[in-house]
Nucleic acid binder design. Sequence first.
DNA 1: GTAGATGATTTGAG
DNA 2: CTCAAATCATCTAC
Length: 429
Amino acid sequence: MEDPARLLAAAHGAGVALPGGIPPPPSAGDPAAAPHRGPPPAAPQDTGDILQQIMAITDQSLDEAQARKHALNCHRMKPALFSVLCEIKEKTVLSIRGIQEEDPPDAQLMRLDNMLLAEGVSGPEKRGRGGPTAVAATSGGCPNDNSIEHSDYRAKLSQIRQIYHSELEKYEQACSEFTTHVMNLLREQSRTRPISPKEIERMVNIIHGKFSTIQMQLKQSTCEAVMILRSRFLDARRKRRNFSKQATEVLNEYFYSHLSNPYPSEEAKEELAKKGGITVSQVSNWFGNKRIRYKKNMGKFQEEANIYAAKTAVDATNVVAQGNQANSPSTPNSGSSGSFKMTNSGDSFINLQSLTSYQSSPVGANVQSQMDSLHHVIHQTGRYDTIVGNPLYTTQRIDANGSWQDATTPSSVTSPAGDPGSVNSDASN
DNA sequence: GTAGATGATTTGAG
DNA sequence: CTCAAATCATCTAC
């Protein structure tokens, strides 16, 4: 900052030296003005005078100074002189600052802004389907089991959002206050020293630049906080939680009642997911795991299979007794027909194959389900003691290659006539 | 703490 | 994409 006293004196001195010898306006009680009247003094003398004036300033009372200032401001040549000084200063400042003043658009700031916007920290508040929801959905997360973490995430994100906005507001307020203050100060000073509006504007830009640096730091910290929160959430996502009893029940019921073809269609998966309060991908995972584990250790699952088979058989019998053979929505992919492909035709299960004539009817799916169940019951009631732990009981459904052999051909929608040579696959494919 | 159970993820095939 | 298979990571019962 320039010394106001010096500038003041310089302005005064310059006024004296104006071409044409225009005297400064008469200023009452201004002893310093007296030596300037008459012919211009020599340079050393001039300096001495200025120094004297400067020294005299401190001796002046406030009123005297104000009066002097006023006198200066009222000088008719003041605007012209002022603009000349401004011009000179402008040129000097520009040559010093050069081109470097112009900042390129900050890519880092843009990245931060974009991220904050994407995370829902800046911009309009996201309700319901925010970032975390998308994360949970894409990763096959469980909306039920993750609900605690989910709401926790939302609460924390909201907290971050709140802090961010309040800090941002504080910075903006401070910036605006400071800018106003500086502008007022400069405007005030512009009456006594050459400050052009352009310079004020530049100063304002500098202040904004400084504040935006602070803002960027705030944005950076906010982004970091969001990333930490997010990574914590993603870690939590991996934290496994066992399904509810209801979900396991529903899944097992379907699995054992479709043991011949435990590949639920997309619709069936959706329904199972709905019933069990889990996601479709969780249903898929469960069936994937179940098929593998069942196949690997059928003996272990025997008891479970019998329990569910009996349960389903009872239900099915009730349904049949009521004459209500409406197609079950949960068994959409076992009703399209096809030939049996048995590896163990000696089993009592073969007797039930006579029922396959039902398969061409719309109730085929339900019948198939009942057949599977009845199959279990037959075993349970007739040979249970010898069957428990005996893989023979179920190997009929898995061929030598380990592929799942169905009582029905994989009920592919695309091949309703059936393909005896095909290996079971999910009907949804 | 440990073994077994279980849900999720990864990998590779089709 | 779905699936099987292997594996990981966590839960749960003891």
